[in-house]
Design a protein around this nucleic acid. Structure first.
Lengths: 204, 204
DNA sequence: CAAATTTTTGTATGCTCGTACAATTTTTTG
DNA sequence: CAAAAAATTGTACGAGCATACAAAAATTTG
């Protein structure tokens, strides 16, 4: 069974919204701009979606999937806990996405999610996934309370680095971001735990 | 010479804007809301200011001064490099300001400064001040390139922690934020540098 | 106190945007 | 091919907002 016109149009609008999102952030997303970006006429959005907010919702899921694919693909190839950890960090800074407009767009999503319960739920889902992935890399290697501290610190470092890429005119590259977070992780865990992580296979 | 009515009214409007800012962020700031918060009628803003953006500009300066006062007061009492460092960290997390609405408000300022050259200049000024203060705590204690890395890491940790307070429903307290950043700093610098910082007086 | 000046009020204007929808075109069906 | 259904277009409406400004009120001046 081939995709219906409806599915195709909805997907096109979501991807149009995504492109507009990367350029202008959530505030720059008007129905007209979304439709134009998708190559359609202005009124079409309300034919295929209940409202602009519905497009926004699916667009954010789409945007997150782009990043998550980067993470997951790298994690598949990891053989040690340490490799998994690096897969998460590196996957969160794809070279072609780590630039000011994109960082600003994500920042605007964070702001918007404070006033939109749907977006807030997505946001928390994304955070739980990240926290869960990070935990799996260090559990059994460090003690319980330490795990929560480690996860919080790395999450803050990742998001904080994106924030700086957005706000400060920093020209930081993704390689520099990864290297900064990597060395923070190393000094936080300590060399013995790092060595253990590098020698622990992924499964257990 | 007493303050003119104009100075008083402008200050009242700026403070009204600040209160509205803390509650609703930059997007929630309408001229009507600012005037209402200042206890004046809606049209008064355009009598004392060229535009809403001008109020925004002064309001952000005011908001930053609130934080900077916290930092500066703590730094005055510092006798060692380490104390100065802690003064900066603690001053950036005043207990009564470290809560979700305020964090969201600051986040919305970061987003807005991407599309407003005036706000962007303020933002960069704030960042240079922070970086300069941080540098002064570790220069001569660690080598040149290391300083830049250290400053970047701490700045990212501070902003990242605010971002998390805004976005994740984290209930993190200011004490927890300070403690997290403090331990990150300690493991980054290494115990010998920390000891040196604790034994180095502030002036040179 | 009366005229002049300053300050404040309330509103009108124009703009942007989301949404609904009638009119039109395209596709499908029998 | 004609009728019905689906898809698309363009626009009109209303809401929310920044700004300007005429009218009113308050204050100062002579």
């Amino acid at each position: 069974m081939k995709r219906s016109i409806e599915d195709i149009r909805r997907q096109e609008l979501i991807e149009g919204a995504y492109r507009a999102f990367l350029q202008f952030g959530i505030d720059g997303l008007t129905t007209a701009r979304i439709c134009k970006e998708a190559g359609m006429s202005p009124g079409i959005l309300s034919y295929y979606f209940k409202s602009k907010d519905e497009v926004l919702f699916w667009m954010v899921r789409h945007a997150n999937r782009v990043i998550m694919d980067e993470v997951v693909n790298r994690m598949k190839q990891a053989t040690t806990r340490w490799d998994r950890l690096m897969a998460i960090v590196e996957g969160n800074f794809p070279e072609d996405l780590f630039e000011q407009n994109v960082a600003n767009a994500w920042l605007s999503f964070y702001v918007a999610s404070a006033k939109d319960v749907q977006l807030e739920r997505l946001q928390r889902l994304f955070h739980r996934r990240l926290a869960s992935n990070l935990s799996s890399c260090v559990c059994h290697l460090v003690e319980g309370e330490q795990i929560r501290h480690f996860v919080a610190a790395v999450a803050i470092l990742i998001d904080g680095t994106w924030l700086h890429r957005a706000a400060i005119h920093s020209r930081m590259t993704s390689a520099e971001a990864i290297s900064l977070i990597k060395s923070q992780i190393e000094s936080t865990l300590g060399s013995d735990v790092v060595t253990a992580a590098k020698n622990t296979p992924v499964s257990p």
